[in-house]
Simulated scan of single mutants.
Amino acid sequence: MKGVLLVNLGSPESPDPKDVKPYLDEFLMDKYVIDVPYLLRALLVRGIILRKRPEESAHAYGKIWTKEGSPLVVISKNVHKKVQDRVDVPVALAMRYGSMTIQKGLQELKDKGVTEVLLLPMYPQYAMASTKTIFVLAEELRKKHFPEMTITRINSFYNKKDYIQNLADSIKEHLEGFDYDHLLFSYHGIPERHIRKSDVTTTHCKINSSCCVTASPAHEFCYRHQCFETTRQVVELLNIPKEKYSETFQSRLAGDKWLEPYTDIEINNMPAKGIKNLAVVTPAFVADCLETLEEIAMRADEDFKANGGENFKAIPCLNEDEAWMDTIANWIKEWAKN
């Protein structure tokens, strides 16, 4: 019997520092997130970062928390229900971090008689800190607890035509009536070394102006290429001229070389360049979360206007968009037929 496991990032149980701290510990101690030797990672995370970060993150979570709970979890649960209503095979939902574990999701499917699992990380672009860590943990759990199961993976969907159409339609809808000077595609940042580590050719990724537009097997696992390709296909559909859009990367940690240009720096500099009306879309996410709701829709908005900007529009993620729900369901149906 076939079944599906949808997986997203996760969330603390509440916006209280006592709940945020263990969540951040699990997240940041993941060797695919901070990919340094264990002792150094423990020193960085538990000796430095977790001394102040839980309080800071708790404050940020508190700004976006709803009566129903974490926006990411609430949206993901609604997506799960809507997708399940559209397909005949069992669908379960899990998070990489927090209490909604992948093990629980696989167990739920097993209890329904599932032996063939379609594992779908809810990330359009592949990255070791998001997609790979899900795949590795799922395989470890399969071997240990669910040896009778087989798992089929969806590495990414950044260039699937139906996803691109959903994204373009959503952007178009939310831009109606907003006379924007510039559309910024803000993707989640990752360290540059993650790009090189994911290069299956070991030589292609130079992180320059040419490698991401030069055909290579490396692109199957290159987050940077996949971000740029997402943008390229969307602006082509929407017929947006080159001078009216750009790409940046957000949410970096200090001390490392991360993908550039940085979202916050670029946004702060835009008003001085004559960009007074700015729209921002965040296509590394399909569900609104801390990085989209607090970092972009709140902080970036404030900073843009503080630096002379006039109008700022944060375009929501696809969330529970009905056409997007149809797309996910269609992928599942297509897989289930084979």
Rank of each mutant, 00 (worst) to 15 (best):
A60D: 11
A60E: 11
A60S: 09
Y61K: 00
Y61A: 10
Y61I: 06
Y61L: 09
G62E: 04
G62W: 06
K63N: 04
K63D: 00
K63L: 06
I64L: 10
I64S: 05
I64K: 11
I64R: 03
W65P: 06
T66Y: 06
T66C: 00
K67W: 15
K67F: 11
K67P: 08
K67I: 14
K67E: 15
E68V: 07
E68A: 14
E68R: 07
E68F: 08
E68T: 03
E68Q: 10
G69M: 08
G69H: 14
G69Q: 10
G69D: 03
G69N: 13
S70F: 13
S70P: 14
S70E: 14
P71D: 08
P71R: 04
P71N: 07
L72T: 14
L72P: 08
L72I: 15
L72D: 12
V73T: 15
V73G: 12
V74I: 09
V74N: 03
V74G: 05
I75F: 07
I75A: 10
I75Q: 12
S76V: 14
K77C: 02
K77G: 00
N78M: 14
N78D: 15
N78S: 12
V79T: 14
H80M: 05
H80C: 05
K81L: 11
K81S: 13
K81E: 14
K82N: 12
K82H: 13
K82A: 13
K82R: 13
V83I: 08
V83P: 09
V83Q: 06
V83K: 02
V83H: 02
Q84I: 04
Q84R: 12
Q84F: 01
Q84M: 00
D85W: 08
D85P: 10
R86A: 15
R86S: 13
V87G: 08
V87W: 01
V87S: 01
V87K: 01
D88W: 09
D88T: 08
D88L: 08
D88E: 13
V89K: 02
V89A: 11
V89I: 09
V89F: 03
P90Y: 07
P90E: 01
P90V: 03
P90R: 03
P90N: 06
V91D: 00
V91T: 02
V91L: 01
V91Y: 01
A92P: 00
A92T: 01
A92M: 00
L93T: 01
L93P: 04
L93E: 04
A94G: 02
A94F: 01
A94V: 07
A94R: 11
A94I: 14
M95Y: 03
M95W: 09
R96T: 09
R96F: 03
R96Q: 08
Y97T: 01
Y97G: 00
Y97M: 02
Y97A: 01
G98C: 09
G98R: 10
G98K: 09
G98Y: 05
S99A: 03
S99D: 11
S99T: 12
S99L: 12
M100Y: 07
M100D: 08
T101R: 02
I102N: 02
I102Y: 05
I102K: 05
I102W: 03
Q103V: 00
Q103H: 09
Q103F: 02
K104P: 10
K104G: 09
